[in-house]
Design a protein around this nucleic acid. Structure first.
Lengths: 236, 236
DNA sequence: ATACCTATATATAACGC
DNA sequence: TGCGTTATATATAGGTA
């Protein structure tokens, strides 16, 4: 479709190939979207651009595994893949026996398995794990698990920590009390007491954490050169 | 395209839906084939038919889907996935330290694409979030966030909490010191000292506190359901 | 379901910016 | 890369077999 009929074979000129990719990718995703909507089905479309950028469309969900073209020669890898596949097969067979026999295609069609790119979810998982660890460590400073204690110094440090916090608390309260006496309202909320600065930084952190969930896109591109790198950057 | 323009929304009549699926599937696969050929790229297309049959097109070796709709939830690969993620994380960190985070350097042979909505990961995320909140709440008992404070009573409770913990700590240490003098070994590990009883009472208190928080959890809930739902998909 | 038909809706190749 | 334009090629809705 176009001014001229195009033969279906690899386009030699790389610029043309890139242009065709962009245009047809768009069309293909649109069609995929339409089909999945019209027929209310799960559908996933994955491709690597000529510049090896991954593009995903998914109507729903799920994890998908896909082979990496440039890396299919490694024997070591093949063995790994086969092992993984075997594992998956087993797991799938279990599901197969329990449920209805609909997933034969999974067995017969699949030959290579592939590996994950870090999605937002994964990043968030890591972030949470780290934060949890930090938080628990912090907690341990106050209330150490006796079993984990290894030295008297640690114990003393903990005591000091508790003591200094306690001191700070008392000072804080006294500060508040003196303010309260100046302003007569007994039911006055603490936030409104003068000289009491809400720690904005804390709130900010929470907002950032939550915004990580906001993304829920129909389709998206991911750069392959690194999980760490910015997804919106252009490939070289 | 056809005699009449069709609105892109789920087709109600199941026979029509099935017919449309067949026709459009064919077209979609053709387009997928053309794109992958013209641009010489790896591409995979996966879908479940209205009758839940899996259909795969792949320009290369193939791909795998872990189904996610309610009917297909037999596969138990959480462990596998988490392990894999851990592995990838490690490798990625290494690659990052050594050199630029090029994808090839990260994992030897495989790419895994992991859809953001993957159920098991999501559950894990949810669990972590809860745990983090619990932990932070616990932490606040020792060192409260001023903004959240609403009453003087809470402050006093916090002080008492700190004080009692401190007292317990000091007693504990003195207990240990006296034991140490009786037993001459200076390098003796604390865990092995006789008469060292983990204070069950205290742990119990913590559990109670946490469960109380957990039942209050709803108001603090993070918008996790945003991850699950697809905004373009009409709810059934 | 599958094949063919036909009128119409869409996709897109080649071009310019 | 991205965005229009336009002439043409394809896809497909709604039929029928």
């Amino acid at each position: 479709m176009g001014r001229a009929k195009l033969e279906i074979k690899p386009i030699q000129k790389s610029t043309n190939r890139q242009i065709t990719y962009s245009k047809r990718k768009k069309g293909l995703i649109k069609k995929a979207y339409e089909l999945s909507t019209l027929c209310d089905i799960d559908l996933a479309l994955l491709m690597f651009s000529p510049s090896d950028r991954l593009c995903i469309f998914s109507s729903e969900t799920s994890a998908i595994v896909f082979p990496d073209r440039s890396k299919r020669q490694g024997i070591q890898n093949k063995e790994y893949l086969l092992r993984t596949l075997e594992q998956l097969k087993t797991e799938n067979d279990m599901a197969f026996q329990i449920n209805e026999p609909r997933y034969e295609a999974i067995h017969s069609d699949v030959k290579v398995i592939n590996f994950p790119i870090f999605t937002e979810l994964e990043k968030e998982l890591c972030r949470l794990q780290q934060q949890l660890q930090i938080s628990e460590e912090e907690l341990r400073k106050f209330e150490p698990d006796p079993v984990r204690f290894t030295s008297m110094e640690e114990m003393e440090a903990c005591e000091n920590h508790l003591l200094s916090t306690l001191t700070r608390m008392v000072q804080r309260r006294e500060h508040l009390l003196s303010r309260s006496f100046e302003a007569p309202s007994t039911q006055q909320s603490i936030e409104n007491i003068e000289g009491w600065e809400p720690e904005a930084e804390f709130k900010q952190a929470r907002i950032i954490a939550n915004s990580a969930y906001a993304s829920n896109q129909l389709s998206y591109d991911l750069p392959l050169q690194g999980i760490i790198s910015n997804p919106t950057q252009t490939p070289k």
